[in-house]
Design a binder for these strands. Structure first.
Lengths: 215, 215
DNA sequence: TTACATACGTTCGTCTGTGTATGTATGTTT
DNA sequence: AAACATACATACACAGACGAACGTATGTAA
């Protein structure tokens, strides 16, 4: 519900100058309550998404976990997908804030990508991707947010100046898929790295560092 | 209901020799019906799993798609997870039957793995993996089947004689993760390959063919 | 302090899905 | 052809989840 304070839009006011400076410096406590419960709900949503998958994210479960009533939930969000969308937005914002300036070379770029992908929170992104592929009606509500995620960890990065070199670009694209494979392995292993993860990572790093040879 | 019925069969029969050779060569038609509807249900299950994901695989949907009644379904399977398990077993059998003798070199081994992973049906495996990670109670019913899948496309292959060489083994493990990343990309793209898939595949093949160099 | 807006709680009807009878038809055996 | 088993259908009872409607409490402005 937009806070377009009542009446303002329709009738011509005599002293409209007066409220041109609403400058409401108060309005804090309420806003804080709102921010608090919204944060609680959205965090509970993401946690649930990571721990038990998309289908388990039900309004009831989220509310229980966040410690708020279903009424409170419905006061802040019109529907469950709405909550999902906002929760993913928050997650995206958090992950992006941790982002560092663009990496200088291929190795560091891969490291940066791995930093994102290896986070436990990345499972939430996986779940969102799958959910969208499985139910196209979600596209309208959470599509835009998910698209932003793809930018965080995506071939779009592959156009950065760092990858001007064509073969570096191909190498990065490949590395990204490898890392996604590892993330998938973690996701299907309750977040724990698989046994061969280190082997794969060092192999990948070696390739990134030394390029390709004929043997 | 056990047929411990009225006396008749309890009495010693005069020509009991007659039924000592039951040798029922008939029993065809019924068996065919059974096989037919079971196949229909299991195929519908897999199709649904691929198209709309784990959560969408509901008994009602499966029955509608297979064109059988819910009663028929419950006649053949005690529960929905039971059907899922049998459907996955069938899928596994199909994929394994297409398997060829072990590849001779690293490149062919990667190709063979990619043949499995790039199949549209692989999305069903992905869904099963995620579902099991999200709901541990599924472990008892579909856990064993899913474990067999892991054998089809897994590091277990990495112990084949073909990969006696240690660096080949590491390379294969990495390649497998890369391919899984690509499969994930297809799954989240409604089965269509992503734009950079070919780039990644040729890059991967080049590495497998030529090894690593210092540049 | 009155008047209102916002935040939250509770109850309700509905829908979808599941498994359990119980009925009926079609094979199968003797 | 009678007796039985198997295959399938319909009806029912129940559980979980959703959104709407309505109630209450607590901040906020006049």
């Amino acid at each position: 519900m937009r806070s377009s304070s009542s009446g303002t839009e329709a009738m011509p006011r005599r002293q409209s100058i007066v409220d041109t400076a609403p400058a409401r410096p108060a309005r804090r406590a309420q806003a804080d309550r709102t921010a608090g419960t919204r944060a609680a709900l959205e965090r509970a949503t993401i946690d649930l998404l990571i721990e038990r998958g998309w289908a388990a994210v039900t309004a009831i479960e989220v509310c229980n976990r966040a410690g708020v009533s279903r009424g409170a939930f419905h006061h802040h969000y019109t529907s469950l997908p709405q909550l999902l969308a906002d929760a993913l937005k928050r997650l995206y914002a958090e992950m992006r804030d941790e982002d560092r300036p663009p990496a200088a070379d291929l190795g560091r770029l891969i490291d940066a990508t791995w930093r994102h992908i290896s986070s436990p929170r990345f499972k939430a992104v996986l779940e969102a991707w799958l959910a969208m592929a499985n139910d196209s009606s979600l596209d309208s509500e959470i599509g835009p947010v998910v698209a932003e995620f793809s930018n965080l960890v995506s071939p779009a990065n592959a156009t950065t100046p760092t990858l001007a070199d064509e073969s570096d670009r191909a190498l990065y694209l490949m590395a990204r898929e490898t890392l996604l494979g590892l993330a998938l392995g973690r996701a299907t292993n309750r977040g724990r790295p698989l046994g061969h993860e280190q082997t794969v990572l060092t192999q990948l790093r070696r390739i990134a560092d030394h390029g390709i040879q004929a043997r």
